[in-house]
Design a binder for these strands. Structure first.
Lengths: 210, 210
DNA sequence: CGGCTGCTTGATCGCTCTCAAATGGGGTGG
DNA sequence: CCACCCCATTTGAGAGCGATCAAGCAGCCG
């Protein structure tokens, strides 16, 4: 803990960019960070949104040379960060740290596998519903009449998170809004009827509204 | 090493099944193991094929309760296996083991992320080409006129590996065979013109043959 | 108040899945 | 050794989901 460095970043800045040499890893204390990747042909995708307590940029932990993604601040953020060498040293001396890192990495792997499976077996609407429900779970804030996703989230972001296009997401959200399941604005989404989304996610029916 | 148990399995048997309590992890010595998952709605997918030197069933390493997938023997196989508690103890005493495990897990995570990206940004034909090239890399055997995938691989398997259907894979392979890029039989594939497949994988053209 | 950025919505196209059958190779049992 | 049967594979036809192309609209910030 004493070896940590405290870092603050404002919205739309980055902690690191894809391809940079990976020398530090981070733990979010406050705010929200978007981890995204971009392919050679320009396709961008969101790996995940990290909130308080979660760690990101953990490549240095297992000997990666460069960060495989970019960490962008979505909501003003403070994080703790550790140096690669320091961490290696700490893991040598206190094995539980390594074990813990293994656990976290395993969790991430399991999560990615689940999303991989979703991608191969579900239609876009189901994937969007699930993504939204997960975000509610992780970053939801109770407001009157529903649950607000607690950070700015554009259609584009949601598209990159679910592996589809901005247009398709927009259509889907419009439909849900008409059905009363959500209400949304510019980079804002409020889920009004989670149960309806669950129905869609589970492919139980085609009408998740009242 | 002394704590390892040696296990042999014949083709079409399993080391463990999805959902079983995860008590041991394995390292392949010889042969080939298919790691696959199945969803509640019956969709099956292949996570990877593990060959000599690779480890699988590593959930116990980071505290998972049950195996998230099934390990099926594809080519007669011997493996070493370690008990969960033993491993935990070893990691406590010899930190490099944990560090190494982190590295391996990190590699797997990177691999899965790459495939996830492929799934969101590429067409089926490209994905199949890439999968095949990777298999050539990992399990290719030089034979006259090409490189043989060194274990039985059905269209169904390839479909589950690339997130598509048996039918689509069959069509694609037929086309490639006509073009002279590969030749194939029942659960056998020989790549004759890797360069052609690369062209397809990179989306450089629509005719990778001579 | 103006411009920029994010959102909406229509029309069309094509890739891929789905449904449906037929074919053939290989291993097994007699 | 041969015949049979099973399973992998092939191939056709058709439908539909979602991407792409193309404008137009509307909050929000400066």
């Amino acid at each position: 803990m004493a070896a940590a460095r405290r870092v603050e970043r404002k919205r739309d800045t980055t902690f690191f960019r894809q391809g940079q040499e990976a020398v530090r890893f981070f733990v979010v204390m406050e705010g929200r960070v978007k981890i995204s990747q971009i392919t050679a042909d320009g396709h961008q995708n969101v790996v995940r949104y990290a909130g308080p307590g979660e760690l990101f940029g953990c490549v240095p932990l297992f000997g990666g040379e460069a960060y495989p993604g970019t960490a962008t601040v979505v909501a003003n953020c403070t994080a703790l960060s550790w140096d690669r060498l320091t961490t290696m040293g700490l893991m040598e001396r206190y094995p539980p740290i390594a074990t813990n890192a293994l656990k976290l990495l395993g969790g991430e792997l399991a999560d990615l596998r689940r999303r991989y499976q979703e991608l191969t077996s579900q239609r876009v609407e189901q994937r969007v519903a699930r993504a939204l429900l997960r975000l509610v779970e992780k970053a939801g804030k109770r407001v009157e009449g529903g649950v607000l996703i607690g950070f700015p989230l554009s259609r584009q972001d949601l598209a990159e998170l679910t592996g589809t296009t901005l247009h398709t997401v927009s259509r889907i959200l419009s439909a849900w809004e008409h059905a009363g399941a959500i209400s949304s604005g510019r980079r804002r989404i409020i889920v009004r009827n989670p149960h309806g989304l669950v129905s869609i996610a589970e492919d139980l029916d085609t009408d998740g509204s009242a």
